[in-house]
Amino acid sequence: MSDYVPSIDLTPWFEGTEAGRRAVADQVDDALRRAGFLLITGHGIERELRDRVRATARRFFALPEPVKARYAVSVGGRGWIPPGAEANGNVEGEPTPADLKESYSLSADDPTGDPVADERWFLPNVWPSEIPELQAVLTEYLDRMRALSDELMSICAVALGLPADHFTAYLTHPTYCFNLNWYPALRQVGEPEPGQFRIGPHTDYGTVTVLDREPGMGGLQVFTADEEWVDAPFDPDAFTVNLGDLMARWTGDRWRSTRHRVLAPPADAPEEELLSLVYFYEADHNALIETLPPPIGRNSYPPVVWGEYLTEKLAAITVG
């Protein structure tokens, strides 16, 4: 099943010929119909930047817990999400053990001028004074993620037979969430409880997720259309991209928002620790999302306002 999640080279899209862009869009359409996941290469983001983000972030997670606790927040906040605070599997309706991870979370912080919207969606991010280099490297990385995600949304539009700028009106001042997810080693977290994972089974909530991850025995798995868990393929040069629930609703289930999980730390690799860079792209907080009609959409969903929809999802996975 290693070919279930395909790898797509975006180079022809960026080269700009009509045939090349169409070919990439067709490949993306097929991947999102079948798997809801894909790898992308030819994205133009240097390995050096990704490595620099990861190395700097590891310095934060290596700080003593009382120091990290100065930045502690609940799920959806800006700062350190400590162990035990999040259980992604809860979103499926049954209580699950807390995820075996820590996160440092950032979100959109460019104010709109509307004090109510800004207080809810565009507060300033929090930067740990102990790692002053983190702000500069993450600001650079987030700018690149926004540009790449906008490009992916254009590819999605063309894949649906729509103008490349179709989704632009919904992305004028979008929200996003960026998580540095640190998965500690088994020797640190102890033996997992039954049904406990580094991240429990769930789907993402927004439009597209762009993930830079590390290989490991306790790594990412994808739930196939045949209801089988398979290891997601890994390519050090690629980003892993998957679709969120909002985009699946938007396309009337033409495309899949696929369940996935991150396995518990493995007993036969007790020193394995991993760090993932996860950019969840979303939409304008007040965007009204309505299912695209046939022939794009197969099923119809009630319209949702993105910010209200996200608020409900975050409440479901918050522990306590």
Results as ranks from 00 to 15, higher is better:
residue 5 V to G: 00
residue 7 S to T: 13
residue 7 S to N: 12
residue 10 L to D: 03
residue 14 F to Q: 04
residue 17 T to P: 01
residue 22 R to D: 13
residue 23 A to C: 09
residue 25 A to M: 04
residue 28 V to L: 03
residue 34 R to W: 04
residue 36 G to S: 00
residue 37 F to L: 08
residue 37 F to I: 03
residue 42 G to S: 00
residue 44 G to A: 05
residue 44 G to N: 05
residue 47 R to A: 15
residue 54 R to N: 10
residue 55 A to K: 15
residue 59 R to T: 07
residue 65 E to Y: 14
residue 68 K to H: 10
residue 71 Y to M: 06
residue 76 G to T: 04
residue 77 G to Q: 03
residue 82 P to F: 08
residue 88 N to A: 15
residue 89 G to W: 00
residue 95 P to E: 13
residue 96 T to V: 09
residue 101 K to P: 02
residue 101 K to L: 07
residue 102 E to I: 09
residue 105 S to N: 15
residue 108 A to P: 04
residue 110 D to Y: 12
residue 115 P to L: 08
residue 120 R to V: 12
residue 127 W to R: 06
residue 128 P to H: 06
residue 131 I to H: 01
residue 131 I to G: 04
residue 133 E to A: 10
residue 135 Q to A: 09
residue 136 A to Y: 12
residue 138 L to K: 01
residue 141 Y to G: 08
residue 142 L to P: 06
residue 143 D to Y: 10
residue 149 S to D: 11
residue 149 S to N: 10
residue 150 D to Y: 15
residue 153 M to G: 09
residue 153 M to S: 07
residue 153 M to T: 05
residue 157 A to L: 06
residue 158 V to M: 09
residue 160 L to G: 02
residue 160 L to M: 07
residue 163 P to C: 03
residue 163 P to A: 03
residue 168 T to C: 11
residue 168 T to K: 15
residue 170 Y to R: 14
residue 174 P to C: 07
residue 176 Y to S: 05
residue 177 C to Q: 15
residue 185 A to T: 08
residue 188 Q to L: 14
residue 190 G to L: 05
residue 198 R to A: 07
residue 199 I to G: 12
residue 200 G to W: 05
residue 200 G to F: 04
residue 201 P to I: 04
residue 204 D to F: 01
residue 207 T to V: 12
residue 214 E to C: 11
residue 216 G to A: 03
residue 218 G to W: 02
residue 218 G to C: 09
residue 228 E to W: 10
residue 229 W to E: 05
residue 231 D to T: 10
residue 233 P to D: 02
residue 239 F to C: 05
residue 246 L to I: 15
residue 261 R to I: 07
residue 268 D to Y: 10
residue 273 E to H: 13
residue 274 L to F: 08
residue 274 L to C: 13
residue 282 E to A: 09
residue 290 E to F: 07
residue 293 P to E: 06
residue 300 S to Q: 14
residue 300 S to F: 14
residue 305 V to K: 10
residue 308 E to W: 10
residue 311 T to P: 11
residue 319 V to F: 12
residue 320 G to Q: 08
